[in-house]
């Protein structure tokens, strides 16, 4: 998808000069990613709308972009903030960070007092992603677990494990500390892991 995007140094002046080719390149490179991030935070129904709103904010703010991060990270941070604001408007009570309940698969009750496994992981009859995804039921199960994640956990997981961003950029995009970003990812991965494990237990 990302076919030879010019460097930020080359792109930014062209964007400021309203160069249509440059806009087409940037939109082609980043719009899909923006929609994925918006969807992770606000859900599928208004993700496209949030991404559009974010583009308009990008155009407005570009003259004041100070280049303390890459253009990509800066654009994604605008998406993240647009989405968070939207989420607060839509549902005042929802917590961005966390939902109640500990992860089933690494909860304290799985270990004895000395920290060893009391209820060890069971064997999965799958060795590759294709093995796992061959089961439509398991796909549904993973999808349900993804949708149940708190928004910021889902955003961290989407950016890292589904879109391949590095942790430093992710923390800048979501405006969380490095350690908080790692915790968000750790929890999100554990929840999906737990959902798959539960599926194999049935």
């Amino acid at each position: 998808m990302n076919q030879q995007l010019p460097s930020d140094n080359e792109l930014i002046p062209r964007l400021l000069a309203h160069d249509e080719t440059a806009y087409t390149q940037v939109v082609s490179a980043y719009h899909g990613l923006m929609v994925h991030l918006a969807r992770a935070i606000v859900g599928p129904a208004i993700a496209d709308e949030v991404a559009q709103e974010a583009w308009l904010a990008v155009i407005r703010a570009l003259p004041r972009f100070e280049r303390r991060s890459s253009l990509k990270t800066w654009i994604l941070r605008i998406v993240s903030n647009t989405a968070k604001t939207r989420l607060r408007h839509e549902s005042r009570t929802v917590s961005l960070e966390d939902a109640p309940g500990e992860q089933a698969n690494t909860g304290a009750n799985r270990f004895n007092a000395s920290g060893r496994w009391a209820s060890p992981p069971t064997v999965w009859h799958a060795d590759t992603p294709d093995d796992l995804l061959a089961s439509q039921e398991l796909r549904t199960c993973i999808d349900t677990a993804l949708r149940a994640l708190p928004p910021l956990q889902r955003a961290a997981l989407t950016l890292r494990d589904m879109q391949g961003l590095d942790m430093e950029s992710i923390c800048k995009v979501l405006e969380v500390s490095e350690s908080n970003g790692r915790v968000l990812l750790h929890r999100a991965r554990n929840r999906i892991h737990a959902a798959i494990e539960e599926f194999y237990l049935q």
């Binding site: 060795d127 992603p129 796909r139």
Partner: peptide
């Protein structure tokens, strides 16, 4: 062996998410 299994499963979980994407 249990921790090996746990880490392997977590890695498989991450790889599966990449595949879905």
């Amino acid at each position: 062996v249990y921790c090996r299994r746990h880490v392997k499963h977590l890695g498989l979980t991450v790889a599966t998410l990449g595949k879905i994407a």
